[in-house]
Design a protein around this nucleic acid. Structure first.
Lengths: 326, 326
DNA sequence: AGCCATATGTCAACCGGTTGACATACGAAA
DNA sequence: TTTCGTATGTCAACCGGTTGACATATGGCT
């Protein structure tokens, strides 16, 4: 049987209350007693049961994190940062890969509730996932989850502007934007709006293609195919993420396009991974670490103060100039 | 205040015991009562408290997963699969990014114990992380954690053989292997042994370079630099992972090497991501999904039966023929 | 009438740690 | 000598759900 606090007490020759006092640094305890208790804990390999503690304290120090999938390097990096920061602050992360499926998100949300998490960080959108009068501290990253939920995102509008302008300045005449499903209510739509606005400002007609799925899927290849079939004279593409951008480059090169001479491409996200293995790809860098830090910080405030500062945090983006635009 | 089982009982007009019976499908309950109870639960937004349940049942359905970092796409994919499979089986995943730091791993392990996880899947090595008489079901992936711990890995030796032979068959005269720190006791060392054996069989001298860190770091660039400085006539490189392989290609191309004419490169891991964005890279595919499935399956057996089948599971690898060898 | 399966209630112990109330005891300071 | 700060013990309630023991009641079947 696992040793419990009573066993420690017996071995240390003190009462269970005293052991608890030592563990929680409460009341008066002599150094000598502390020593004896720690010694006893080590001797019998005692590990406190956080379930019991959490049950009584009504505080688990658990954070639920819902992302589409850690397979995608953007979410992989984001989760890795979130977890790292949580760990430093004494929080533990319950990971959920929703695959962007609404019913999964709902089930995960309920699971997190059952597990009494202190808060949730959600990076996928599910209309009606939370009632507006929910009680759980929650932060949404790059998605509007509900009107009572603080959103953290990078400056998507500016990112869209910079990306589009980069293509224009590189001399592109026909610039196409390819993006995820537009019905998702996410700040990422701002990239599209910015693209459209910038083009219209110059009297050009925006052309937008939509990929069927946000998840990292080969299905998207069909849209790429369609794009090149319908617009073989395209000379600039602004892709909504780097993986898509790289796929486009691959496909275009297969068709005989020369990058960046015939076609310039800019991506989005600029994860460390992509910047490392495909530094040639021009892209907009999202401040992944900063996003993670802000998310955890704001969430922690909500947890501590029970004060839900409903607002939006917008973080700066950055242009990574590679050779796919020039 | 959060509704508890008593509140449900009151609203449904039954006793708390009856509600518990409904929730756990125990004893005799009429359909009518079930209906009333579920109705009441919905009405007051009742969510069972899994802490209390777990505390009593001595079973949390929590699985701890320790990886170096989900930033690395290999671990990102692995974790995503593990989590998905766990979810289907009713387990929840507590994520830990150890960054390959021994003390972090130790702290994470203790944290998992405190949280009463049912089992652990570890993908990083820490000598002495677990005593040989540990009580917790645990599975190690690609690392020898202790003599009582079941190891899941892919066939690293065969992978090393195939990779080396691929370079030989492509006509390479001087093949160099670049790998992680050799002092880590991992089955991945088999790749190196295979490389050395294959070369020696043909009367050639193996040359091995070691990267300082397993983590995904720019430090490795120094080793690459050193390799090309000391062996400018290298015409075949077998890298221990794809990211490293891609970095090498980048660096070599910077030096003026033409791939695959002057230099052929083969990587290792073959994640979906890399195969998608860099399909030209020849690599050895590790069966990530299969590894995840096996790990969870064996772990579950240990949890259910409390029978620790100490052995090793070796899974098949596969060659991905790209254009970086030819 | 007796028996049994079904259906539900009451009650208390239990999981393991936390906490407040209260008692006790010692040594030092007032 | 009294008082107070320090140190520790005893005890019981509590967190929220689970479970076994036992009582009770109804309706159908022999």
């Amino acid at each position: 049987m696992k040793p419990k606090i009573q066993d420690v007490a017996r071995v240390a020759g003190v009462s269970a209350t005293t052991v608890s006092r030592v563990l929680n640094d409460r009341g008066y305890i002599s150094e000598e007693t502390k020593r004896k208790v720690y010694q006893a804990m080590k001797e019998i390999n005692y590990v406190p049961n956080d379930l019991a503690r959490s049950l009584y304290k009504n505080r688990t120090h658990l954070i639920g994190v819902i992302v589409p999938s850690t397979s995608n390097p953007f979410y992989g990096e984001l989760v890795s940062h979130i977890e790292g920061i949580c760990n430093r602050k004494g929080y533990k992360v319950l990971l959920c890969n929703s695959l962007n499926e609404a019913d999964k998100e709902k089930k995960y949300w309920e699971m997190l509730l059952r597990n009494q998490v202190d808060g949730v960080i959600v990076v996928t959108y599910n209309r009606g996932l939370v009632n507006d009068n929910h009680l759980l501290p929650a932060i949404a990253i790059d998605h509007y989850l509900g009107k009572n939920i603080h959103v953290i995102s990078s400056n998507n509008y500016q990112g869209g502007e910079i990306a589009t302008n980069e293509l224009i300045q590189s001399g592109c005449k026909k610039i196409i934007h390819i993006n995820g499903p537009s019905q998702l209510k996410t700040p990422a739509n701002d990239r599209r709006y910015a693209y459209e606005a910038v083009l219209r400002e110059r009297g050009r007609d925006p052309i937008v293609y939509e990929t069927p799925s946000v998840a990292f899927l080969e299905e998207n290849i069909n849209v790429i195919e369609q794009l090149f079939r319908e617009h073989p004279d395209v000379d600039g593409i602004f892709a909504s993420d780097d993986l898509l951008a790289l796929k486009i480059i691959q496909y275009a090169e297969g068709l005989g396009y020369h990058i960046p001479n015939d076609l310039k491409v800019i991506g989005y996200d600029g994860t460390e991974l992509i910047r490392s293995i495909s530094p040639q790809l021009t892209t907009i860098i999202q401040p992944v670490l900063l996003i993670a830090e802000s998310a955890v910080k704001v969430l922690e405030q909500q947890i501590e103060n029970k004060e839900f500062s409903i607002s939006e945090t917008v973080l700066p983006i950055e242009l990574w100039k590679g050779s796919t635009t020039q």
